[in-house]
């Protein structure tokens, strides 16, 4: 079953143009690229359980990326390429520090403001707090959680997810649907 083609929106075209401008010597293009992608990279790193060291990992990701921009061929989106670098840095950090991956800390400051707009979503908000939703996702295996969040939060295609998470498109699809079923079961319990 072919995955839905994600749009190559203006954002991706802008990425390519900004990279070309930076390579041509326009250092302001780097600021724009960092502004556009740093929050996503930080979110991704935190989802892998590295919330505390996220700032340093995000910085290292961009330093590594800009130091090897000529290796980005544009086959993967700039964002998913950044995620691949970040993931590798997270794994390197764990190998050197010899510590177990921890589940991302739960934010229990209260419900995150959720997008509203229709009655069905309003009903879900009434039924579940953001805390419980994050608890449900925290019960997933590391691979399921990574794939699930890349699909749900970042809206990545299975092909992009496969590239980032070092898996296959088919496996990514299976992980996503298994994860959704597990989350539902947790919320229904």
């Amino acid at each position: 079953m072919p995955d839905a083609p994600t749009a190559a929106p203006e954002a991706e075209l802008e990425d390519r143009a900004l990279v070309a401008r930076w390579q041509g010597g326009d250092e302001r293009a780097a600021t724009r690229l960092v502004e556009m992608h740093a929050p996503s990279v930080a979110r991704f790193v935190a989802s892998l359980g590295e919330r505390e060291g996220a700032a340093e990992l995000v910085q290292d990701t961009f330093v590594r990326a800009f130091g090897s921009l000529d290796t980005w061929r544009g086959e993967a989106s700039f964002r998913s390429w950044l995620f691949t670098i970040a993931r590798r840095l997270v794994l390197d950090r764990r190998r050197s520090a010899r510590r177990q991956r921890t589940i991302a800390s739960l934010d229990d400051e209260g419900a995150t403001e959720l997008a509203g707009g229709d009655d069905v979503l309003g009903g879900v908000i009434a039924a579940e707090s953001a805390v419980r939703l994050r608890e449900a996702v925290a019960t997933l295996t590391p691979t399921q959680r990574e794939v699930f969040l890349l699909r749900v939060v970042e809206g990545m295609s299975y092909r992009e997810i496969a590239g980032v998470a070092a898996t296959t498109e088919g496996a990514a699809r299976v992980h996503y649907h298994n994860a959704l079923r597990t989350v539902r079961d947790y919320l229904d319990a």
């Binding site: 979110r43 995150t112 009903g123 953001a130």
Partner: peptide, 17 residues
Amino acid sequence: LALVGALRAAHLDAPVV
């Protein structure tokens, strides 16, 4: 769709960069 949207919203916060 509502569930997926809520899950997404619950994970949108990111460490400050």
